[in-house]
């Protein structure tokens, strides 16, 4: 008797008020014949054991899902896309292209050995110099607040500009081992350039707005 699935429900944990509310809404919509696919998904997720907080599609979740979808298509980034790519690399790891391999290999073989530096002494010297500078600075550097503000703004401006992504050659976007085809391929190339620079453009906008 205990094997009958409906009886197993007896042992199931009691649903919370929130769970019941979501389920009631979904079932009500079904009965009224107005259930859409999203609600159907919500019901499925509930039945399959998802957290109720995840069952109903909120705007926030929709936005996240859209961002993930874009990131999977190579536009922008999303932490779950990182996981997705990691899964792909575990399932079907791709070969390393010969040019990149050769570059990495030559980099290691032609690398000069690092010179050993006695870091405790160097850092001690730097700390001493910094201390003396601080002392001298407080004694000699007297500027008005306006001059300070002007200077700091002036110094900040190139820094802000420098953090923005500048135009540059697009050749890194293409496999350099292969020459372009004599005929065709322009649309794919410009498509790739647009996709890459669109992401730079968004990053620049965020920097300009001070969000990044």
């Amino acid at each position: 008797m205990k094997n009958r699935p409906e009886l197993e429900l007896v042992d199931a944990p009691q649903p919370s008020k929130k769970q019941l509310a979501v389920a009631t809404e979904v079932v009500r919509a079904m009965v009224g014949g107005t259930i859409d696919r999203l609600d159907n998904e919500a019901l499925l997720a509930l039945v399959l054991g998802d957290d109720v907080a995840e069952a109903a599609i909120l705007d926030e979740e929709r936005a996240e899902a859209d961002a993930l979808s874009l990131a999977l298509a190579g536009q922008g980034t999303h932490e779950l896309a990182e996981l997705a790519f990691a899964l792909r690399h575990a399932a079907l790891p791709r070969e390393l292209d010969e040019l990149t391999h050769e570059r990495l290999l030559r980099g290691a073989l032609h690398r000069k050995p690092e010179r050993r530096v006695y870091w405790p002494l160097v850092s001690g010297m730097v700390a001493l110099a910094a201390g003396v500078l601080l002392f001298l600075g407080s004694a000699t550097l007297e500027r008005t607040k306006r001059e300070e503000a002007a200077l700091s703004l002036q110094r900040l401006a190139p820094l802000v500009a420098a953090t923005r992504i500048a135009p540059r050659s697009t050749e890194a976007l293409f496999d350099r081992a292969l020459a372009f085809e004599l005929r065709g391929g322009e649309s794919e190339r410009v498509e790739r350039i647009v996709a890459s620079r669109a992401s730079d453009y968004r990053a620049n906008r965020f920097t300009r707005w001070g969000v990044k």
Binding site: A166, P167, V190, V194, R197, A198
Partner: peptide, 16 residues
């Protein structure tokens, strides 16, 4: 210091 901006994107989109 030129940057990737809306004007460049408009041109690239047009080219595409």
């Amino acid at each position: 210091a030129p940057e990737i901006d809306a004007v460049l994107m408009a041109f690239l989109s047009k080219a595409r």
